[in-house]
Design a protein around this nucleic acid. Structure first.
Lengths: 411, 411
DNA sequence: TTTTGTAAATAAAATATTTTAGTAATGATT
DNA sequence: AATCATTACTAAAATATTTTATTTACAAAA
């Protein structure tokens, strides 16, 4: 009976009570259902939600006048009157994801039906913990918004992914841009003018894969982000797990090795010291110094700023040293993953991040290490897959987090 | 309007729909609320559940005629009419927990309000994977039920805790008593005549601590069971985590060491090979062979079947060798725990199981290992506490699992 | 004591929701 | 092409729930 209320109004509980409150809750339930199950009929909704057909009809009509739902035409029938299909309206709202990497930024725009409308990949940028770097990031975001084909007031929310320790609930980032008293999310929100969330990069990528990537019905999934560092995104019971202060999934710093390499976290023996992009680069340089050869050498010298992307590219050109080193790294990563498989007994482990782009070169050694180190009973339950969204995992994940946080989905 | 329906009826969804279904759901919600929040008033319930006062009144009256709820008298007021307090009825149903250890069984009876009515501890029994051992266990359970002061038809459910790999959803036990095609829970149910669930011992103990022990409002908690093996119970978002097939928390077999000791799981380097009760006994025997002295020696010889309990007792008598070895074990356990702290960033880690009964002898080396191996930011979030329920954790946890599975609480 | 302010409980009225019965639409069958 | 069986949808009736108003109960202040 309300009609024409804004999305923001529908998704806030303030000052409503009694019947109005219940109707709002029911509408949100319907939107959630349509989101999770796709377009459906009134009869199906009534059955799934245990609400009478006339009531669903009236709620759906409300949602249609609100512009959030529309009639997608009739279904085929096998005898009997054909039912109308109702579903979400893609254009009723948009969401921005900003995936900040070490040397570039990816940005994307998602519509209400979870389609990626636009993506701008590899915008050059150097992430550093300075005010200049932050200002630079703001400019990149503002420029991106300027290029978008949608009105800015239809952009409902944004999520910025950063590496390091982030409490996405409070909005504080501890590893980067922690310059003010106020949470980073609030600073961003003021500067950009859009409701903003922040999230750890690995968790955002994981979120993308979980809700718009390779995951289908699995509810307990691990996503391993293989990049300069090694990150972990955890989905439990269909929800992203963040830990007490948002520091869950610090997989790179579990003390798995008995070496003397001091990790940038200050401890010794971290997984990351031997099984990460950083470690790969270190080993690569060591090998070259010891006289190994590689297609990356020009005049017997490595480029000054040898990047992970270079080595990954080299494996695609069959560079033997790169391939060998990646196999070694993979074996160690596999040992790390076997730890979390034993603990989580997940349905699926996804390998993502730049290193995962080497495909079987990294997957096979990981697979064999899992067989070696995981309990077979536990291991048999667990599928190992490569990322489906590849380098877009972060943007898509970011957009989805913005969307789902705003709509209170999966929370 | 229904009145006088049985608990089983209320907690099954079959063949009900429409208003009747919704009323059942509401009643369950009320019971859940009373369970979680204790006795409360109609006004409070109406506010908390967003249901009108007259409706709550009528549901509460129904529950009273059902015998599930009763009036606990008036609250004090500071002006205004005094409200009646309503709460669950302790005697409306009972639950049995059976905690099967290596050398004894603990049994307990819990009432509807989560009070432990009776417990019979340390009933002698030797756990072995044989039919005889199983039959013996059945006899112990039947005898216990015979001694109880409540009618058997008021015992609503039972849970049996076993070590090893257990899928509590399907009811299959893989490490013990896997003699038939049918799930072990079904075999037990037929033999005893009470609705039966089975659960992994560490998870059951964890469940006890989570819902009736040291945990207050924490939602992300780890329970480490230090016994002959080393088990892990995981609470995430207030719910016990079981993993895909119920094999989650295989903490004892993470490959943390680079030793050559073959674990009983068949792998090398498992945490359990160096940080567990088994390892403690092995080390103890080695030390004695190498000429160390201990109060456990009689005529320079160890008892043939040296048990963990003996060594734990010895520490209480200030036996130096036992204390030293436990400190060493603690250090290694601490390294293992630091792995899961980094991954989970939990609010609380609870140390339980027989080894935890050595108190500070085990806690302090664990604590110092955590400082050494955990990321400090993550570690600062995490409290480390000893078990509150001690050896009763298993029985209480078992009873609670039976109760909560039947009532569909926390699921 | 009486009054007053406040809150709970109940009753009555107003709304809302479900149920039931009936109508519309459609493919399959005759 | 007409009828049948089936399902969606809609209208009206029946029931349920909330809202509002009233009564009851209680402590503190006058």
């Amino acid at each position: 009976m309300t009609g024409q209320q804004s999305i923001f109004e529908l998704f806030s509980d303030e000052t409503t009570s009694g019947v109005a409150f219940k109707n709002k809750a029911l509408k949100r339930t319907i939107i959630n259902h349509l989101d999770a199950n796709g377009n459906t009929t009134i009869t199906d909704l009534a059955q799934a939600l245990n609400i009478s057909v006339p009531k669903i009809t009236s709620l759906i009509n409300d949602l249609i006048t609100d512009g959030l739902v529309k009639d997608y035409g009739k279904v085929d029938s096998k005898g009997g009157r054909r039912a109308s299909m109702y579903g979400l309206v893609a254009e009723s709202g948009f969401f921005i994801g900003v995936d900040v990497k070490h040397y570039y930024v990816n940005l994307g725009l998602l519509d209400f039906k979870k389609n990626l409308v636009t993506a701008e990949m590899h915008v050059p940028y150097v992430l550093a913990n300075t005010q200049e770097s932050f200002d630079q990031l703001l400019k990149i975001i503002q420029h991106f918004i300027g290029t978008l084909p949608v009105q800015s007031r239809n952009i409902l929310a944004m999520c910025v992914n950063l590496s390091g320790r982030i409490n996405s609930e409070s909005g504080y980032s501890y590893s980067f841009f922690h310059f003010h008293e106020e949470p980073l999310s609030a600073t961003l929100e003021k500067a950009i003018g859009i409701r903003t969330f922040i999230e750890n990069d690995s968790r955002a990528m994981a979120y993308g894969e979980f809700h718009n990537g390779i995951v289908r019905d699995e509810k307990n999934v691990l996503f391993v982000n293989l990049d300069y560092g090694i990150g972990l995104g955890i989905m439990i019971d269909g929800k992203i797990y963040r830990g007490k202060s948002g520091f869950g999934g610090e997989f790179g710093h579990i003390p798995l090795f008995s070496n003397e390499i001091i990790c940038h976290c200050g401890k010794k023996g971290c997984l990351e010291t031997e099984a990460s992009g950083q470690a790969l680069i270190r080993l690569f340089k060591e090998k070259i110094e010891q006289g190994s050869s590689s297609s990356l050498l020009t005049n017997h010298k490595l480029p000054d700023d040898l990047r992970l992307a270079d080595i990954i590219q080299a494996t695609k050109n069959e560079d033997v040293l790169s391939i060998e080193l990646i196999a070694g790294i993979g074996e160690k990563i596999g040992r790390g993953i076997s730890v979390i498989i034993n603990i989580f007994n997940p349905e699926l482990v996804i390998l993502g991040g730049t290193l995962a782009e080497t495909g079987d070169y990294i997957r096979l050694p990981i697979r064999s290490a899992l067989n070696k180190y995981s309990l077979s009973l536990v291991n048999n339950d667990t599928q190992l897959h490569m990322s489906k969204l590849h380098e877009q995992a972060g943007v898509i994940g970011g957009c989805l987090i913005a969307r789902d946080k705003l709509l209170a989905i999966n929370s």
